[in-house]
């Protein structure tokens, strides 16, 4: 399973990011969320949302193998094994792999838990199976 987004439906409210920080860290702090909302105002007046596609690029470069896959196929960070090397950050194609040492002593990312979907009033977010490319 992975997260999908229709940015056109996003109103920038950030409820998803609060729910995310609660899910990933058990903390009320959207700065520690695993998805990004970029507002573009005053022009052209839109929100661009970036979410994890569960592509696994982060896991592929992690030297300590701290980024693991759960039974549903979602990659997650095993906090105990992260050494904060930041190798995962630049390889993320969506810019949603996070290391901010002033906020957390570990890297973090989306686990496809779906809590963000549950609070999104405009249905901009949803979970579905990862689409695999066909030849």
């Amino acid at each position: 399973m992975r997260l999908y987004v229709d940015s056109k439906k996003c109103s920038g409210c950030n409820a998803c990011r609060v729910a995310c920080s609660l899910s990933v860290f058990g903390e009320n702090n959207p700065k520690k969320a695993s998805l990004v909302i970029e507002p573009h105002f005053p022009a052209p007046g839109e929100y661009i949302v970036r979410v994890c596609t569960q592509c696994g690029e982060c896991a592929a470069v992690c030297p300590t193998e701290a980024i693991k896959q759960d039974a549903q196929g979602a990659y997650y960070v095993d906090f105990a094994e992260c050494n904060l090397c930041e190798a995962c950050v630049p390889v993320c194609p969506e810019g949603v792999m996070f290391v901010r040492t002033e906020l957390a002593n570990t890297a973090w990312k989306c686990t496809s838990c779906g809590d963000c979907v549950a609070v999104c009033g405009t249905s901009a977010l949803w979970l579905a199976e990862v689409e695999t490319e066909t030849a």
Partner: peptide
């Protein structure tokens, strides 16, 4: 109207954001 624009944490955003062509403004 070009987008809904919500306040923090709002599941039912009343805020609307508009492109005003006649006056070339947002």
């Amino acid at each position: 109207v070009v987008t809904d624009k919500g306040c923090f944490g709002c599941p039912c955003p009343c805020g609307k954001y508009s492109k005003v062509k006649k006056y070339n403004a947002y």
